[in-house]
């Protein structure tokens, strides 16, 4: 054994000189991390600029507000699924959580339950559904796409059974109507709800121990467990967050159309939500995703939808465009990981 004291491979500045240089390194690190989100914002800006040039009626104040209003429900649901994606899972059940929550809410309100109580019940039921998916996935060791696909069909069936497959009109004049149509200082309520959700999601992810747990578990489940992090709580909890936020989103949609719709969402709905999260830079390999990115991703998706409507192209093209988007996002992600040697 050679005994010459070796030099460390990564040489570092002598410990005295921490200060200006270390700070600048820190900022460089922070900025390099923000690059994907900044890139997305630039992309959105370019999209809006292009749309303003080429799409008639696009650059019109009320249309822009409209885009934000339409983005609200997608932002909320996509933030939910981001938590599942962060731990390397997937939630295919979202689409039928929409229809199911909508039907349950309408039935309760129709039956005379006070709206706040009805909302609470809907959220609680969604949380239970999420917990079941999470528990089957984590403790049953069943792949997440199977449990949540199964849950998709189960909730879909429940929604059909409760509603007999028919839309249920809400009684007029409930506070749900105000929720959907009202504004505060000219800002639509739904936009405020979405913004509030985003702020809370950001706080949870970046400023709470639970958020740290989620990221750590997503990056390395084994090391997290051996460090004493509550892996089960994370693995089940993220599915509950996903289902509850999907339910919040469904409540907003129900308020907008003023009826309980069993067909709200569907697999297309699931698809849209996951696309928003992925376009927003959430890694499908786990561990990486930002609230800002997901918010921008959802707005991008809705902007494209808005343009398709304004250009009077068949709205049916929408889903294909989303499919292409998700694949592009995937390829970008895979290539980036490959460069880092991260996959496998």
């Amino acid at each position: 054994m050679t005994l010459d004291t070796s030099t460390e491979v990564t040489s570092a500045p002598p410990s005295g000189s921490r200060g200006a240089r270390a700070r600048s390194r820190e900022w460089a690190e922070r900025i390099s991390r923000a690059v994907p989100s900044i890139g997305l914002i630039v992309l959105l800006a370019l999209l809006w600029a292009a749309a303003a040039l080429f799409v008639p009626e696009f650059a019109n104040g009320s249309n822009l507000v409209n885009i934000l209003r339409q983005s609200a429900d997608l932002v909320i649901a996509a933030l939910g699924v981001m938590f599942v994606l962060l731990i390397g899972g997937i939630d295919l059940s979202i689409g039928s959580v929409f229809g199911f929550s909508s039907v349950v809410l309408a039935t309760l309100v129709f039956g005379g339950t006070p709206v706040p109580l009805a909302i609470l019940i809907v959220l609680a039921v969604a949380a239970v559904a999420g917990a079941v998916s999470g528990a089957l996935t984590h403790f049953g060791r069943i792949p997440a796409f199977i449990t949540t696909l199964g849950m998709y069909y189960i909730l879909f069936a429940f929604a059909q059974m409760i509603s007999n497959g028919l839309a249920l009109k809400l009684p007029p004049g409930t506070m749900l109507q105000g929720l959907s149509r009202g504004t505060v200082f000219g800002i639509p309520n739904v936009v405020l709800v979405a913004a509030g959700t985003a702020v809370v999601a950001w706080m949870v992810l970046n400023r709470t121990p639970y958020g740290r747990d989620v990221v750590s578990v997503g990056l390395n489940r084994q090391a997290s467990r051996l460090s004493g992090l509550p892996v089960s709580r994370v693995a089940v909890g993220v599915f509950m967050i996903s289902a509850v936020l999907a339910a919040v989103s469904a409540i907003l949609l129900t308020a907008r159309v003023q009826s309980g719709e069993p067909a709200l969402g569907g697999l297309t709905g699931t698809f849209e939500v996951i696309t928003a999260a992925v376009v927003g830079g959430t890694s499908l390999f786990g561990g990486r995703g930002t609230v800002l990115g997901v918010v921008v991703g959802a707005i991008i998706i809705r902007t494209i939808g808005n343009c398709i409507t304004l250009l009077d192209i068949s709205s049916l093209l929408y889903q294909t465009v989303m499919g292409v988007l998700i694949l592009i996002a995937l390829i970008v992600e895979a290539v980036r990981l490959r460069q880092k040697g991260g996959v496998e």
Partner: peptide, 8 residues
């Protein structure tokens, strides 16, 4: 794989 979370 167990001691540290490399990407963190």
């Amino acid at each position: 794989s167990q001691g540290v979370v490399l990407a963190m």
